[in-house]
Design a protein around this nucleic acid. Structure first.
Length: 577
RNA sequence: GCGCCCGUAGCUCAGCAGGAUAGAGCGACGGUUUCCUAAACCGUAGGUCAGAGGUUCAAAUCCUCUCGGGCGUACCA
C-alpha cells in the first residue's frame, strides 16, 4: 500500500487517533490494512486478529468497538473520503467515496501516460542482468527462450523502477567444447559447408564429434589439447574460433531482433581469458585454491558442497573460474547494487559454489548476487538435449507462431493494413507471453498446442484487448478529457477497473522484487478480463455526452496501462489486429 | 545415497511475506453479434489443494515426515 494513497492516509490517520488501538503508530497501521476479497464487503479492511495480543480482547470485539468509536452514535462517518465504517466479524471495513477514488486514479494515469507505473526507487543504483547467454556454434532452441525472455522483462521492470540496467549476454564462447569443435572441423569440416549454413554445419560437427568419441577415446584428449592451445593464444585455433563466433552471433542476432531483445554487452566467457590468471593467483595467495586430484579447486567441504573446480589437471580453465573473474570485473566496472543471473535451475549448485567462493574472497557485494533460476523446458519424451538431437529450434517456433497469426488475421480481419507486421507482433507476443506466464521455478512442458493457442489467457488476448480499446478511441475521435464527472462511473465493473488500474504500480514492484514476470502477466490478464466483461455489458460511446466522457477516460486509462504493462514484458502493442 | 526444486479441476497453470466462499484458461456441452473489433462475453459440468501429522483464533499458503516427479552431485556449460 502506497503512502501517497489519500484514502489509506485518512484511514490510518483516523485509526491512530483511536484510544481503543492503544497508541499504534501510523506506520504500524499501514501494513495491517488490506483489501477485502469482495468489493461488496468494503474498499479497505483492518483485520483485527493481529491486535488480539496487544489489546487483550477478542478480535470481533475490537472491530465492533472501533466501528463504534469512529462512527459514533450518529452512524455517520466524520471522515472526508470514507463514507461508511462497518465491523463484520473480526474485520473493520471501510467504504470510500468511489467518485473520489476514480478521480484520484484516473487523473493520475491520464497525466502520467506512458510513465504511469514508473518509479524513482532505483535512482542512482545499477542492476547488472546476465541473461540469454547461449553457447555459440549451436542453434538457439526453445529452451534458450526462457533466460532471454525473463531477463529482458526484468531489465525493463527494473528500468521502470528507475534503476540503471546493464544487460549482458554472457556468451558461452569458451571452454573444452571449442576444442572439440576445432578437432572436428579439422577432421571432417570444410569451408564450403560452413558457408552454406554456418551454424548448422558447426552443430553437425559437434554431434559427429560426440558420436565418434564413443568409439575413439583419444578424441576427447585431442579436444582438451586443442582448447588449451586456444587458451594459450595459438593463431590457427584462434582464427577458427573467431570465425565460429562470428557466424553464430549473426544467427543469434536475427532471433534477438525478432524477439525485440537487446543487450548492452556481448562480453562472453572468452572476454575474461586475459584476466583469468590474475584471479587464480589471488585465490592461491589467499590460500583458498588448493590442488586436489591434480586439479586446482576451492574446497567447500565445510559448507557441505563439492569442491569448486578452477583448473583442470591440464591447466585449462573451467566455467567457475570464468564466472568468478567476470563477477570481479563487473563489480569493478559497474559497481552494481544488484546482479541477476538468469540461468536455469540445473545450475543451482554451481551458483551456490561460486557465490561461496566470492564470499570467501571477502567480497561484500556477493550478497547482492542472485541466481534467478527457472525450470526446464521439457518434451513429453523428456529433457531437451542438443547432443541427443531432441530440440525444437527457436526460429521454427517463432515462424510457426507468426504463420498462425497471419492465418487468423486473414480469416478475421482480411482488410487489415500492415497485416504482415501485425502478424509478426502477435505471433511473437504469443510466444513471449506463453513463456512468461508461469512461475519461473516450475518445469514447463513444451506443447505446440499451448504455444500456438491465441484464445483465453494468452498474449494475443491482451493485445486484442488493447487493439479493441484503440479502436474505441478511434471511433470516439476526440481528445480525451481528464476532467469528467466521476460520479457517473457507477457500475460495479467500472469500480473494479479503477481498483485494478490503481494497483498497477504495486504489481510492477512485486514483479521486480520477486523476479517473477508472471506477477505482471496475471495482473494484465485480470485487467483485460475485467475490461472485456465491462465492454460486453456496457456501451462506452453513447448519446449521453457526460457519461461518454467519463467512460472514455476510463477506457483510455485501461488502454494506457495495458500498453505500459505489455511493453514491460517485452511485447508489442498493435493498435489494430 | 545425499542436496535442491516441484506436486492445486481431464490438460496447462494462478493463488503461497497465513486471513472472509479454493480461481482462471484450454478441452467438453449450451448460449450471446440490427449496436464501440466474437482473438470477446455469459452459462453448465469438473476439487479429500499428493498423503499424514504439527504450529495457529485461522493453513493450498508455515514446520516435520511419507509417497510421486524433476534436476544436481570434480575436471562439460
Amino acid at each position: 500500500m502506497l503512502k501517497t494513497n489519500p484514502f489509506l492516509k485518512e484511514i490510518a490517520h483516523h485509526l491512530k487517533a483511536q484510544s481503543a488501538l492503544g497508541g499504534l503508530e501510523e506506520k504500524e497501521i499501514y501494513p495491517l490494512i488490506d483489501q477485502p476479497p469482495n468489493p461488496d464487503m468494503g474498499d479497505y479492511t483492518l483485520p483485527c486478529y493481529p491486535l488480539k495480543e496487544r489489546l487483550h480482547k477478542p478480535p470481533n470485539q475490537i472491530a465492533e468497538e472501533l466501528a463504534q468509536a469512529i462512527v459514533g452514535a450518529t452512524g455517520r462517518s466524520p471522515l472526508q473520503l470514507v463514507t461508511r465504517v462497518k465491523a463484520e466479524g473480526a474485520y473493520l471495513n471501510f467504504f470510500v467515496k468511489h467518485d473520489e477514488l476514480s478521480r484520484w486514479v484516473l487523473e493520475r494515469i491520464h497525466k502520467e501516460g506512458n510513465g504511469y507505473g514508473h518509479a524513482t526507487t532505483g535512482k542512482g543504483k545499477t542492476v547488472v542482468i546476465d541473461y540469454s547467454s547461449p553457447n555459440i556454434a549451436k542453434h538457439l532452441a526453445v529452451h534458450h527462450l526462457r533466460s532471454a525472455v525473463i531477463g529482458n522483462a526484468l531489465y525493463r521492470l527494473y528500468k521502470a523502477l528507475g534503476y540503471h540496467c546493464v544487460g549482458i549476454n554472457h556468451l558461452g564462447d569458451w571452454g573444452t567444447q571449442f576444442g572439440q569443435l576445432i578437432v572436428a572441423y579439422k577432421k571432417w569440416g570444410s569451408e564450403e559447408e560452413l558457408r552454406k549454413d554456418p551454424v548448422d554445419a558447426l552443430h553437425g560437427l559437434y554431434v559427429k564429434f560426440h558420436q565418434e568419441a564413443k568409439n575413439d577415446v583419444s578424441l576427447e584428449d585431442q579436444a582438451r589439447q586443442a582448447f588449451r592451445e586456444l587458451e594459450e593464444g595459438d593463431t590457427e585455433a584462434r582464427q577458427l574460433w573467431e570465425h565460429f563466433k562470428e557466424v553464430s552471433l549473426k544467427e543469434f542476432n536475427k532471433v534477438y531482433r525478432a524477439l525485440g531483445i537487446k543487450f548492452d554487452y556481448y562480453t562472453g566467457e572468452s572476454f575474461y581469458n586475459e584476466m583469468l590468471n590474475d584471479t587464480v593467483e589471488r585465490l592461491k595467495k589467499a590460500g583458498l585454491a588448493t590442488l586436489s586430484e591434480e586439479a586446482l579447486v576451492v574446497n567447500l567441504d565445510k559448507y557441505n558442497m563439492p569442491p569448486c573446480l578452477l583448473k583442470k589437471k591440464d591447466e585449462a580453465s573451467l566455467y567457475a573460474t570464468r564466472d568468478v573473474c567476470a563477477a570481479e570485473y563487473r563489480a569493478r566496472e559497474f559497481g552494481f547494487s544488484r546482479m541477476l543471473y538468469v540461468v536455469g535451475s540445473e545450475q543451482r549448485l554451481h551458483f551456490r559454489q561460486f557465490f561461496k567462493v566470492l564470499e570467501l574472497m571477502g567480497y561484500p557485494w556477493v550478497k547482492d548476487c542472485v541466481h534467478v533460476d527457472f525450470g526446464l523446458i521439457k518434451f513429453k519424451e523428456g529433457k531437451m538435449s542438443t547432443r541427443a538431437g531432441r530440440v525444437i529450434l527457436l526460429e521454427e517456433v517463432l515462424k510457426e507462431a507468426v504463420e498462425r497469426a497471419r492465418g487468423i488475421i486473414q480469416e478475421k480481419n482480411p482488410d487489415l493494413s500492415r497485416a504482415e507486421e501485425i502478424a509478426r507482433q502477435v505471433g511473437i507476443g504469443a510466444v513471449i507471453f506463453a513463456d512468461l506466464s508461469s512461475r519461473r521455478t516450475r518445469d514447463v512442458l513444451f506443447d505446440w498446442k499451448e504455444v500456438l493457442n491465441f484464445d483465453g489467457e494468452t498474449g494475443p488476448y491482451l493485445q486484442y484487448t488493447h487493439a479493441r480499446l484503440c479502436s474505441v478511441m478511434r471511433k470516439y475521435g476526440e481528445t480525451v478529457d481528464g476532467k469528467v464527472d466521476f460520479s457517473l462511473l457507477k457500475e460495479k465493473d467500472e469500480y473494479l477497473l479503477v481498483r485494478k488500474l490503481e494497483s498497477f504500480p504495486r504489481s510492477i514492484v512485486s514483479s521486480a522484487e520477486t523476479y517473477e514476470p508472471v506477477v505482471l502477466c496475471n495482473y494484465l490478464i485480470e485487467l483485460a478480463s475485467i475490461f472485456n466483461r465491462y465492454y460486453n455489458h456496457h456501451r462506452i460511446i453513447s448519446k449521453n455526452e457526460g457519461l461518454t466522457s467519463a467512460r472514455i477516460l476510463l477506457a483510455d486509462c485501461t488502454r494506457q496501462v495495458l500498453r505500459n504493462g505489455l511493453h514491460l514484458l517485452g511485447m508489442e502493442t498493435p493498435e489494430e489486429m
